[in-house]
Simulated scan of single mutants.
Amino acid sequence: MTSPILFDHYRSSASYRVRIALNLKGVEYRSIPVDLAAGAQKKPDYRAVNPQGFVPMLDDGGRRITQSLAIIHYLDATRPEPPLVPGDAADRAHVVALALTIACDIHPLNNLRVLKHLTGDLGLTEETKNGWIARWISEGFAALEALAAPRAGRFLFGDSPTLADICLVPQMYNARRFHVPLDSFPLLVRLDAEATALEAFAAAHPDRVAPPA
């Protein structure tokens, strides 16, 4: 069976999620870097296969799947061990809600295209941009900490990593990259440390997959 191909960018939070999921599943894959800073995602050849022009995109034997959470759900369906969402309907909804709090409500407001628009088209200063990032990450993390607390264990839900942790770790990386204070989120800091101690998470870290300088 041909190894899947991941169209990837080392600092993309969404790509980082998929790398973690592939590692947790033990799936060998080939990475094709897409240089977001150089605008490679906007080139006609990439847009021809991914009209949104985003990463990640997974090509699994000719099946091209976009959107990180859709890719992870696909991996969970086609490679079910270990499961990344619980089997129980209520538990599954809880884990997906935690993941979406990050993927839909926090991450989009601090991704590259939004930040470029703030400093480029709108002419905001770096200081104002960084304040924007800190506000939305901090507001989202406050909600996430409260939502996760009642059912957290070693991880955001229970004692095994799930889709929620796969989303948390890249967002914590972003928070630290932009110097967002994390003292108010001790649970998230603890859970992030628990997850990143696992090789599946550590091997997906941007520093481990960055292209050569």
Results as ranks from 00 to 15, higher is better:
K42R: 13
K42N: 10
P44T: 02
R47V: 04
R47Y: 00
A48I: 01
P51E: 04
Q52R: 13
Q52A: 06
V55M: 07
D60E: 06
D60P: 01
G61L: 04
R64I: 02
I65E: 02
I65A: 06
L69C: 07
L69Q: 14
H73E: 14
L75A: 08
L75M: 07
T78N: 11
E81T: 11
P82W: 05
P83F: 11
G87T: 10
D88F: 02
V95P: 06
A97R: 15
L98H: 12
A99S: 14
A99N: 02
L100T: 09
T101Q: 15
I102F: 05
A103T: 10
D105L: 14
P108Q: 13
P108I: 11
N110D: 08
N111L: 12
K116S: 10
H117Q: 10
T119Q: 14
G120Q: 11
G120S: 12
G123N: 08
G123W: 04
E126V: 04
E127Q: 13
E127Y: 00
E127P: 00
A134F: 03
R135M: 06
I137K: 05
I137Q: 05
E139W: 01
F141Q: 11
L144E: 01
E145S: 01
A146H: 06
A149D: 05
A152M: 06
G153V: 06
G153N: 10
F155V: 01
L156T: 03
G158D: 10
D159R: 00
P161D: 10
